[in-house]
Design a protein around this nucleic acid. Sequence first.
RNA 1: GCCCCGGUGGUGGAAUUGGUAGACACGCAGGACUUAAAAUCCUGUGUCUUCGCGGACGUACGGGUUCAAGUCCCGUCUGGGGUACCA
Length: 938
Amino acid sequence: MEYNFKEIERNWQAYWANNKTFAAQNNSDKEKYYVLDMFPYPSGAGLHVGHPLGYIASDIVSRYKRHKGFNVLHPMGYDSFGLPAEQYAIQTGQHPVITTQQNIARYREQLDKMGFSFDWDREVRTSNPDYYKWTQWIFIQIFNSWYNPRTNKAESIQTLISILETEGCKGIDHDILTGDIEKEVPAFTASEWKDFDEKKRSDILMNFRLAYLGESYVNWCPALGTVLANDEIKDGLSERGGHPVERKMMKQWSMRITKYAQRLLDGLDELDWTESLKEAQRNWIGKSEGSSLKFKVYDEKQTNASSFIEVFTTRPDTVFGVSFITLAPENDLVASLTTPEQRAAIEDYIIQSKNRSERERQAEVTKITGVFTGSYVLHPFTGKQIPIWIGDYVLVGYGTGAVMAVPAHDSRDYAFAKQFNLPIQEVVSGGNIEIESYDAKEGKIINSDFLNGLDVKEAIKKAIAEIEVRGLGKGKVNFRLRDAVFGRQRYWGEPIPVYYKNDVPYALDENELPLILPEVDKYLPTEDGEPPLARASSAWKYKNEFDYEHSTMPGWAGSSWYFLRYMDAQNESTFADKKLSDYWKQVDLYVGGSEHATGHLLYVRFWTKFLKDLGFIDIDEPAKKLINQGMIQGRSNFVYRVNGTNKFVSNGLKKEYQTTALHTDVNIVDNDVLDTEAFKKWRPDYHDAEFILEDGKYICGVEIEKMSKSKFNVVSPDDICAKYGADTLRLYEMFLGPLEQSKPWNTNGITGVHGFLKKLWRLFFAQPANGQGEGALIVTEDEPTKGELKTLHKTIKKITEDIERFSFNTSISNFMICVNELTDAKCHKKAILEPLLICLSPYAPHITEELWKQLGHTQSIALAPFPQYNETFLVDDTVNYPVSFNGKVKFTLALAASLSVQEVETIVMDNEQTTKLLDGKQPKKVIVVHKKIVNMVV
RNA sequence: GCCCCGGUGGUGGAAUUGGUAGACACGCAGGACUUAAAAUCCUGUGUCUUCGCGGACGUACGGGUUCAAGUCCCGUCUGGGGUACCA
């Protein structure tokens, strides 16, 4: 029999599907293990060889854990709402549901070819009403909840209503506040509350709901016709499509994730995620501790004596160094603070900064702009007049949108002060403020009244204490994290289950779900700028009367809870039975790209904590362990056309000509050698191409780039499977290097792993004479030798350790070493080969299933218990001691392992090579590390 | 600017706790089998030096700790990723 991978792989893939070999059991006495891949969006381009990298790793772990006796949950599904299908719909008119179905079918076909052990009975699709019914249900739970600071968790909005009914709201000083320090709910009494009408009550509750409708600045992308979240923007352009983004005030659905900022931060400590990923989340949450501080506005006529500007500062110790105040141009106070003389300049500036896109604003960080308002505040401690400026380096969305500028100790304030000739007062010693600001939190406070002589840390404490005593503000924690915008003005997403009655939004009743996405005539906004859902027929109304919400949910909605749905994918009465979520708990191993660090991975943690608060699940974090697979980059090949001709010159000779580098299809290049005949056929204009060769070959140039169609460097897993088989692909992707590392795809080494599988096959089947015909099964029942047992058990040990620490590349090497050793020993013994097959089967499932069957087994190898290594086979009788002089190894000495340190030393000292190397000198010191090394100091 | 991760042969990479640097694989060179090719197998392959035995050097660079450093510490250079007026 020969190694016919095509037939073998097709047969076993069919067998697994027909026998549901990988179905996870919801009722099991076994310990559970949950392995999850990050939710793929099924794009039209299909999978390239970079995508399966993580899937192969997670599949190896899944299969390994099954061998180890775990009840393994390893599901797959699709995050199938999203922009590309909708953009395609806009261009072609084809309903996104069709595009999505086609893309999923293509994905599935590709995934099936690679032999993954997914439990397909649990597949989910976020765009299925069966699924988004529960996404909508969770939205309603969030809408009907508020964050109770007294219990420090989310609760039903009813508990807030009872508080308002009995206590009312005490406003600013109440312990129930909204998330934003600048927006506080005005005070009212319990009886006032009872007299409020429906609209007023709704407006007040909106300040507390965890899903709320609020006015806020959003990132508006005109080209995509929708708002984007911060993590959907890269370098000021939209991540999808690279379109400009501008800031716009809009009424939007948002999620009050900021209420969870502290818990999201604290939770990171217990997670087994990479440090860099946790750091990214910490930075994104951006906790900073400081103080609020009020500056009274100076008013000559004392008519407006009560008005003030509140700022947030992390450096209250530098308060005596304040030389001006800067407001964000969008700050509400600007209008009232602008003096008539300054009005024109200020208005100009506001218009100018509004029109500057985010990208320009970011690109021109060094360009310092601002305008004086004409007004002043009074310094809270010295009573001095301090000018109020506006400048777009101050962000309206952070803190109060106002800063107390201390140019001596803040580089941005310093640049601003230099630009506009404002005073710079040093209050912390240690720097040279003539040259630059001194921002470090080190040194002694000077020129600062009661803070003088303290060091920075003490001064911060004392300053806050003083601010609080004088009622000027209080110690405060601020987060950089913003509430998450939850609406998109797009068609292809979950409808938000809300309707409007007299301008008051109401959530649908749970039993009215799902709210099905309606049909529309076009996937574009309406003439008056309403989202596409406004195009739905007039019948699409709640109770035929009230308008539904017209925006849809963002991409992250469906993916924020999908890991729970896999536990109970078909349940029609709840999103996941509590009994099952209590069994499966959290994901044990989550594999995916680090690009989700501040998006998906933050949102899914948020929803998990929310669902836990309301008692729907029992876990606090979605994934215990997470690994980021590296990106597989493309490796582009180039040909060099001699300018003005149809001649192509090989890379090594191109300097002698004037050439243009052109991408060529990497699939017609082997080890950087171009298949010139295939090249001629590749495109009509190359049909008559001529080549200038070196050493009879055309050598292509190489560059590492992103894998993309336009660069002709896309390698499809289908092609690799067709040429070498899925087992080779799986092994090779793992063999490339450590999983977390990014690396270019390069097929150069693939013959090595393919050859390994053939070599394995030859341990079972004889090489037929002349390579013709069928080789016979040559496996024997003979007793293995000590050496063979050592090879096997050494391998079992290494492989086990390697899988446990996700070092898949080294385990492949170890398999190769094992097969090389067994080949050299001419070992065809069942007692050795059988356990070896089990070890290898997570990596190369098809060939091992086939050989397992050939050994006479009738059950799938996937269910066989993983072999245990036996330490007694690994013990060496002799140790090869390297003998070194001053740390340099000169020779080795094979000695019995049983020898003591003293005995080893004696033997080494008596050795004639030692005598020769010592050349009559006495060593100063002899170090013998037992069973390791001998070192002599001379 | 700040944060994180890297830098080892011609190439991908190995060395898990400081203990023979370069495992395994590719590539390359030579050889066997073959009419030939493919497939397969064998030998060699860090650099310099030597006819050879051997010797010297060698993990980005400069220091340090240690009997012993790719591994630990300090400094520098460099590549990649993330993030950025967050007060």
